[in-house]
């Protein structure tokens, strides 16, 4: 189960082409086309029931869909099974379970059962990943003792072990207090820059998401608005749905968003031809 680390380079991309999902006779998503580069954080916003979580489940391969999802890595290789780093919504798990943070790393990365202990390599990997989210002190703690914010940071550390092709964050701060939310997003933002991660952040809170997103997608069954954060925020549809003032626009405009030079994006360049 252990997978080696692969350096991400900023030149790979995820392309979703005309994705449609129908569940129980209801159309949840239709004609969704998105293009994500690594190094970019894409915020997917929309009302409850807009199909945001369904979009993630389609990418995870949990629901059947029509259309295509392509993953292209820097070697211009099509990959059907990319490495995905997933941080679910407020984790539902048995808080009384005898399970430490180190156990969870062992179970996720090793075949050898966690009750036989761990090797030095694993201990180093876990320590390094936790240090990236300032959670090194949580290594031996029991999972059920962690606060909402600590738990999500541990899940974030697991999501970057190994470095994923695509990181999916599904309302990752719903169980986290206000100060924890800031910390969490700052860390996601830092990780994205350090590891050139391609990140999809699903959120109902545009105000929070817009502070860190390079690209905003407004989803309500179909893609209503898609573009660079500052452009998307200027769109009346988005403004009408979320009702924000000019200060959010100003904040987005003043922040330097990660932009992808289409020449460095070899993979999608190739695909587009």
């Amino acid at each position: 189960m252990s997978r080696g680390t692969r350096k991400s380079c900023g030149a790979c991309c995820t392309k979703i082409v005309r994705l449609g999902v129908e569940l129980g006779g209801r159309r949840i998503l239709e004609e969704v086309s998105l293009h994500l580069h690594c190094g970019q954080l894409t915020a997917v916003v929309g009302p409850n029931g807009a199909g945001k979580t369904t979009l993630l489940r389609a990418i995870l391969g949990e629901v059947p869909y029509t259309g295509h999802i392509h993953f292209l890595d820097s070697g211009k290789q099509r990959r059907d099974r990319p490495t995905i780093g997933y941080v679910p919504q407020k984790m539902e798990f048995d808080a009384t379970a005898p399970l430490s943070v180190l156990d969870l790393f062992t179970q996720a990365l090793r075949l050898r059962p966690a009750w036989l202990g761990w090797d030095r390599d694993l201990l180093e990997t876990a320590t390094r990943s936790l240090a990236e989210v300032e959670a090194g002190h949580l290594l031996r703690r029991r999972l059920g003792q962690l606060s909402g914010g600590e738990l999500q940071r541990v899940m974030l550390a697991l999501a970057i072990t190994p470095i994923p092709d695509l990181m999916l964050l599904d309302e990752p701060v719903s169980g986290v207090d206000q100060s924890g939310i800031e910390v969490f997003y700052r860390m996601v933002s830092g990780l994205r820059e350090r590891h050139h991660l391609s990140v999809i952040l699903v959120s109902h809170d545009l105000h929070q998401a817009a502070k860190y997103a390079d690209q905003v997608v407004f989803l309500n069954r179909r893609v209503l608005v898609q573009g660079k954060t500052s452009q998307a925020l200027a769109n009346p549809l988005l403004r009408q749905a979320f009702g924000y003032g000019p200060e959010l626009l100003a904040a987005a405009a003043s922040r330097r968003a990660v932009e992808i030079d289409s020449k460095t994006c070899l993979a999608c360049h190739l695909e587009e031809k």
């Binding site: 995870l60 997933y86 984790m91 399970l99 075949l111 050898r112």
Partner: peptide, 24 residues
């Protein structure tokens, strides 16, 4: 069998969507 399945069953019991996202 329990040697091979322990970690996998534990991850699935912990959270099955998450386990699946890790390629399980």
């Amino acid at each position: 069998v329990f040697y091979v399945t322990y970690n996998r069953i534990a991850l699935t019991g912990f959270n099955s969507s998450w386990a699946r996202s890790r390629g399980l």
